[in-house]
Structure formats: structure tokens, C-alpha cells
Design a protein around this nucleic acid. Structure first.
Lengths: 221, 221
DNA sequence: TCACTAATGTACGAACTAGTACGTTAGCTA
DNA sequence: TAGCTAACGTACTAGTTCGTACATTAGTGA
């Protein structure tokens, strides 16, 4: 009656450390983004993987370290995207506009990342501080912005007194706010900032804003 | 030995519904802003008041409703501030700049409010949705912006294709990001967006940006 | 093929946490 | 001043939640 020569593998359990680790990270990313650090449940994360809670502690050590690992991977994704940036062949104005648009697109495409950043700020960036990997490495985009800015100033096109970090903050502000605060903004003002049919409007608005700022005639200031 | 005619008032307990309610709200505001909705503890909030947890349930019903009440009061503060706005006697450019600066100042002065908004967005504005008081009432600032925008367009100064809500989003983005994301931004890029000695720089940057956007020469677009 | 270790699973517990049942009293009003 | 009710306090519970002790096995290298 009972099977005799089955490969004694209940649940199809195959050992694969990398896969298990990655699966935990996937699920944890989604769960932390959904519910926040405190709101996320270790048991819930475990239940949504093909492994058990024991493995979370085995691979990551605890809830805090798991969240740190989630952040590390999330930031590595954006950094990789920034390394693909290819705008320096354009003239400064077009290059900045393109960069702003890519930032806009990236924020829109990764709402979970935006939520993780919001959550990490509620916790005053303590997990980033605890991460060896994430400590102040800057970003590839910053170098690109710096070079475009220099070229634009040299040619006399750009008049604004900003450096790359400030401009990055300006561009990110708009992109971040639009995604992160869409719920309260929508509830209070009745406008969905992420509505599909408004996408081009806001994308252009961002580019116009940044270019206008950089190229404004400041003679009368 | 024992006191005879003391006013039988252990702990100086005086009944004052309004004061008790307000004290709970004060403490809860701070505690929710500090730890998030899930992270905040009802017991902890109660411990920091002069009353007991029982009173939280007596006055507010539960943790969710308490958070909603906290949001209602926080938004009423900003609305009151907006009602004091007095910029329409200025020319459109000066008026918008002044408005941006006041928004900037208000964000800087109320970091707890910013955190509450972040938290409420993590929860997809469900408490605002549950509040009769907070449902899509707009904001006094929106009317002001609308009138300034109309005046600016009429005089030919403003060329941008935005309405009051969009402009409000643009201004808020920068102010919000600077305060809300200062921790991750500082940790990653080594720049404190809220440093006192950079305050004027960012305040001017915001005004310059908004004015440049509104008044840009769009003939070449 | 044997032994060893990395990888995995089960079961449990201690501490916490939102919420409540029940009892008390200050202060107002008739 | 008697009585009533809004305001308040104490003590408890049911359910949750992070973390771990202990047992097991797949797969690899000697």
C-alpha cells in the first residue's frame, strides 16, 4: 500500500540556500512595504514563503536585520538603474530633462521602494545607519548630474546656484511626493496624482520646472 | 494620625473632560508621530498622560479612532494657519514667493505633522477616508493660489499651464521631502537638508524654482 | 559509502498588547 | 441635600508576536 521507493522528499523540499534567501527577501520586501516595519509580521512573511520562520532567523538573524537586507537590495536596484543612465551625449538642457523623466519613471515603476523609504524615514534611517553596505555611498546619478551641470554652466545656459545634490533633491521631491503622498493628497484634494491620463502632464511639469529653474534669467533677482 | 478633613482627592484628581481629551490627543500625536500607527502603543500613550488607558477608549473608542482624531486636529491646525494667509495685496510674483516661503516655514515648524502624513499614506489614507471631518474639504490656501494664479496670467506674467492644485503639489513636494526624507537623504548623500545654515539657501531655491516655472518664456518650447 | 555540516522543520514559550468587565466618585441639578 | 450621571480607575484576559530549543535531513567531500 504505502509507496516504497519514493525519494523521501515531502513538500518537494530541495535545498537551495540562495533561492530560499531570495524568496524570503522578495516576500519581506512586499510585506514591509505593505504594513511598515512594526506592522509587518515575521510569521506572515514566513507563511508566504515556501520555507519557515526558522529560516528567516537562520539567514538574517532577526526582523531588524531582515528589514536592513530588504533596504540594501532595494537600493541596489535603483543604483543599477542609475548606472545605465545614458544622457551625457545630449545637450545639457535635454540631458537634465531626460534625467528628470527617467527619475519620474523609476519612482512610478517602484512604489514599493518609495514606501520602504518612507518607512525608513519614520525610523530615522536607523537601518541604513546599521548597514555597512548602505553607508553614504552616494549614487551614480549624482556624478552624471554634476557633469551635466558643469557643462551647462560653462556654456552659459545654466544660471542657477545649485550643486548636483540639491538638484537631485529637487527632482526627487516631486517624483517622491507624487507617489508617496498620493493617498492623502487624493483624499483631501480629490486629485489622483498618479492617474494614468495625467502622467504626461506631470512628467512635463517636472521637466519644465527643473529647466526653468536652471535657465532662468536672474538679472532681475 | 490620619488626616481628617482632606478633600478626599487622591492624585489631585479633578474632573475636566476637555482637558483630559486634549491631553490624550497631545500625547497620542507625539507618540503616533514617533512610532507610526502600528508602532505606537496604547498603553504607552496612556502612561504618558495623567489619566488611564480606560479614558482613551472612553473618549475615542479605540486606537484607530484615536489616530483619526489626531489627524483631524493636525489638519485643523494647518488649515487655521492657511486662513491667516495675507499675500493677495502683493503682486503675483511676490505673492507666490511669499506663499511658498510660508509653506516652507510651516513644514519646518511642524515635523510631527509631516510624519503623521507619511504614516497615514503608508496606511493609504484609510483614516482620512473614515473621517467625516476630513473628507475632501480642500484647503484655504488653494483658493488663494487660484486667485493669484489668475491675476498672474491676466497680467501676462505667468505662462505655465497649471492650476492651483498642481502648484500646491509642486510647492508641497519640495517642503515635504526636505523634512520627511531628511534621514535617508542625509545617511545616503551626507547632506542635512534641514541644517540651520542651509535654511535660507533652500528657502530661496524653492521660491526661485516656482517663480521660474511660472514665468518661464515658453516661446521656444 | 560514510561522516559531517549546511540547511531545514516542529513545537513551544515569554512578553507584549488591544480591549473590556466591573467598580468608584466628583460635581451638578432638582 | 439627595440622587444621578459623566468621568474616572483597577484588574484582568484573550490573542498575538518575536524569538528559540531541539530534532531532522540533504548533499558534499574524504
Amino acid at each position: 500500500m504505502t509507496s516504497v521507493k519514493e525519494p523521501a522528499r515531502p513538500n518537494g523540499r530541495i535545498r537551495d540556500a540562495a533561492r530560499t534567501r531570495a524568496e524570503i527577501l522578495d516576500v519581506a520586501t512586499h510585506e514591509f512595504a505593505r504594513a511598515g516595519f512594526t506592522g509587518a509580521r515575521v510569521d506572515e512573511i514566513a507563511a508566504r514563503t515556501r520555507t519557515t520562520k526558522r529560516m528567516i532567523y537562520y539567514y538574517f538573524g532577526g526582523k531588524e536585520q531582515l528589514f536592513t537586507a530588504v533596504l540594501e537590495r532595494a537600493y541596489s536596484v535603483i543604483r543599477q538603474a542609475e548606472q545605465q543612465l545614458d544622457v551625457e551625449h545630449l545637450d545639457p538642457v535635454a540631458a537634465i530633462r531626460r534625467l528628470a523623466e527617467l527619475t519620474f519613471d523609476h519612482h512610478e515603476a517602484h512604489p514599493d521602494f518609495i514606501r520602504l523609504v518612507s518607512i525608513e524615514n519614520i525610523h530615522e534611517a536607523e537601518h541604513i545607519a546599521a548597514s555597512a553596505e548602505l553607508g553614504e555611498i552616494g549614487s551614480p546619478a549624482l556624478d552624471v548630474i554634476g557633469r551635466i551641470l558643469a557643462a551647462g554652466r560653462e556654456s552659459g545656459l545654466f544660471t542657477a546656484d545649485v550643486d548636483a545634490v540639491d538638484l537631485h533633491a529637487m527632482i526627487s521631491s516631486f517624483c517622491f511626493f507624487r507617489v508617496a503622498n498620493r493617498h492623502t493628497f487624493g483624499a483631501l484634494f480629490g486629485r489622483d496624482l498618479v492617474a494614468a491620463d495625467q502622467r504626461e502632464h506631470y512628467r512635463k511639469m517636472l521637466g519644465d520646472m527643473v529647466i526653468a529653474y536652471l535657465t532662468a534669467d536672474r538679472a532681475t533677482d
